[in-house]
């Protein structure tokens, strides 16, 4: 936990250089690995961003700055994702598309999940929330992903996610598995069953067990 505390301290100072150097040192000296970093340091740091200032506009600004720093940190981790993948000698078994519904601004959790898929031997494209809805639905039969993972933070976006899943059921290949996750479901788990997805995932272990089914078939 001392690494988490140190990282939040750096994040509160909004020191991007120090944040990147600190994390890269943790990874290169094997004090933690990518999953440990995402799970025990970056995600809690993102969720725990407190702001005691009265002026909420400054809080929103600070949240943006800190999120941007964490984003840079995550992008810097990719060589370590690949290194771990090589070390595991994991084959690539399938492919996943990781996305957020349109207008979902919190997409960093989904970005980390994309790396989880890679570590589980599933080639993952992270498309954030920028992909136009119709274009994705229109192309999904050609992309033919084994998994589509949708991350929802703002509970309002559950509405469009329900529709997205219904449309995917019609257009995606029948073996495409749909996974949902994100803080909208953490805040109220009753919302999980309101969407016709195949799986709900919250942790790296969840992704691991969901993808292992595919692995067994293709080994």
């Amino acid at each position: 936990m001392e690494y988490y505390e140190k990282f939040t301290e750096i994040l509160e100072k909004e020191n991007k250089k120090e944040a990147v150097e600190f994390v890269l040192e943790l990874l290169s000296s094997k004090k933690t690995d990518v999953v440990g970093l995402y799970t025990e340091i970056l995600t809690p740091a993102l969720n725990g961003m407190a702001c005691s200032l009265k002026d909420k506009r400054i809080c929103v600004w600070k949240e943006h700055v800190r999120t941007a720093i964490v984003r840079t940190v995550v992008e810097c981790c990719y060589p370590y994702v690949l290194e771990q993948l090589n070390r595991q000698e994991t084959k690539i078994y399938g492919k996943a598309v990781v996305l957020c519904p349109p207008q979902e601004h919190h997409d960093l959790g989904a970005r980390m999940v994309a790396d989880y898929f890679v570590l589980c031997g599933i080639d993952a494209v992270f498309v954030g929330s920028d992909t136009p809805y119709d274009d994705f639905i229109g192309a999904v039969d050609i992309i033919a992903p084994d998994f589509v993972a949708i991350s929802v933070s703002n509970f309002y976006n559950i509405i469009v996610t329900k529709k997205l899943v219904e449309d995917l059921r019609k257009k995606a290949p029948s073996n495409t598995r749909i996974i949902i996750g994100g803080s909208a479901f953490v805040a109220n788990s009753e919302n999980i069953s309101k969407i016709n997805a195949d799986y709900y995932a919250h942790t790296f272990e969840d992704i691991k067990s969901i993808t292992s089914v595919l692995k067994e078939g293709r080994e």
Binding site: N154, F155, Y156, I158, I159, N188, K194
Partner: peptide, 24 residues
């Protein structure tokens, strides 16, 4: 959307039926 997303609960009506009923 800015009003709806700030509510505690959103009920979506489609063709006279409740399509979705979610709580924050």
């Amino acid at each position: 959307r800015h009003i709806a997303e700030k509510a505690d609960r959103i009920i979506e009506i489609t063709d006279g039926k409740i399509n979705l009923d979610i709580k924050k």
